[in-house]
Amino acid sequence: MTWKQLFTSSLGKKFTMAFTGFFLILFLIVHVTINACIFLNDGGQTYNTVAHFMSHNWIVRFLEIGLFAGLILHIIQGLVLWKQNRDARPIKYYSNKPEKNSTWYSRSMGLLGTLLLLFLVMHLSHFYVGTKVALYGGDQPHNLYNEMRETFSYWWIVAAYIIGVIALFWHLMHGFQSAFQSLGLNHKRYRPIIQAAGLGYTVIICVLFILMPLAFYFNWLA
């Protein structure tokens, strides 16, 4: 058993998806917590302080490399799986009733993931690029809170973010518990807990994220 065999086997690919998935699940907790500082309603003071720390602290910057590596691995592995799984059935069924045996979102992870990737391109161009330009080129202190207010003053951007978070919701609804199963963590006593935790996590993360563009658009914040 070489390392290459492990990582290229069907099960190895599941492990990669699960490990990187877990990593991204943890990242979202950090992301949503920091962004939720806008709800302190202090004109973005706390939020901008934390955002400044995140963009300047070298440990965070180092972890950021890991985040992108994990994200890219998750995307590439997902595309490889999508192609291999499509090739495993060259002739499709004439009559098929998958709704009788599985949920639509568990069968649509590739589609939901693609939507998320498109969303990410837009999201990074909105906020990540601006932060980096400010970090390396700007002499003014970067006010990310005002940048959010500006970005979310357009209804179509708010609509795009809501669609993005809905895609994230269904992706997590399957992905959270699926990652445990892939790593072999399926136990009669813990499974209901994992499923409840997955539902709780997904709802909390997505509701908080969706409230952010809405809060700016409808001027709920100072």
């Binding site: 069907s10 099960l11 690919k13 599941k14 492990f15 799986l81 291999q84 799984n85 998958p98 009788k100 045996n101 599985s102 949920t103 568990s106 069968r107 992870m109 399957h174 518990q177 699926s178 199963q181 892939s182 790593l183 072999g184 963590l185 399926n186 009669k188």
Partner: peptide, 25 residues
């Protein structure tokens, strides 16, 4: 490759559980 839709368990004539897939993993 398995993506954990669990359609297999639902359609298995013998009701084999996907807990076996977790065990294999």
């Amino acid at each position: 490759n398995c993506t954990n839709t669990y359609a297999c368990e639902a359609e298995c004539p013998k009701g084999i559980s996907v807990a076996n897939i977790a065990r294999m993993n």
